[in-house]
């Protein structure tokens, strides 16, 4: 009984896999990209939306690191260094 169920499960899974490409066509957006202009628009916006978050987060991180380094080079005796020296003194 168990083996029978497994066999039927495998057959159903294979059938579902075979049907998957047809299900994709049910997406209204996928059928829109038929002509070259709309395909180019899809490609351009996909690249734009993929790259933009990386650029934004990268720029934010870079700005924070740069400001930290700049601060470190211009203010060697920061408040924390001053506190450490006060703690070390008797």
């Amino acid at each position: 009984m168990r083996q029978k169920l497994r066999r039927w499960g495998a057959i159903l899974f294979g059938f579902a896999l075979f049907q998957a490409p047809r299900l994709v066509l049910a997406c209204s957006v996928c059928t829109a990209g038929r002509d070259e202009e709309s395909q180019d628009a899809f490609l351009a916006t996909t690249v734009f939306m993929s790259v933009l978050p990386l650029i934004l987060v990268g720029a934010l991180g870079w700005a924070v690191v740069r400001r930290t380094q700049h601060r470190g080079s211009t203010q060697p005796r920061s408040a924390r260094a001053l506190a450490r020296s006060l703690e070390a003194s008797p």
Binding site: V64, R67, H70, S78, A79, R80
Partner: peptide, 15 residues
């Protein structure tokens, strides 16, 4: 001596 480390003043933060 201070029990906790002295917190950095707001102006010392990079941003």
């Amino acid at each position: 001596r201070p029990v906790h480390p002295v917190p950095e003043p707001a102006s010392a933060r990079p941003i």
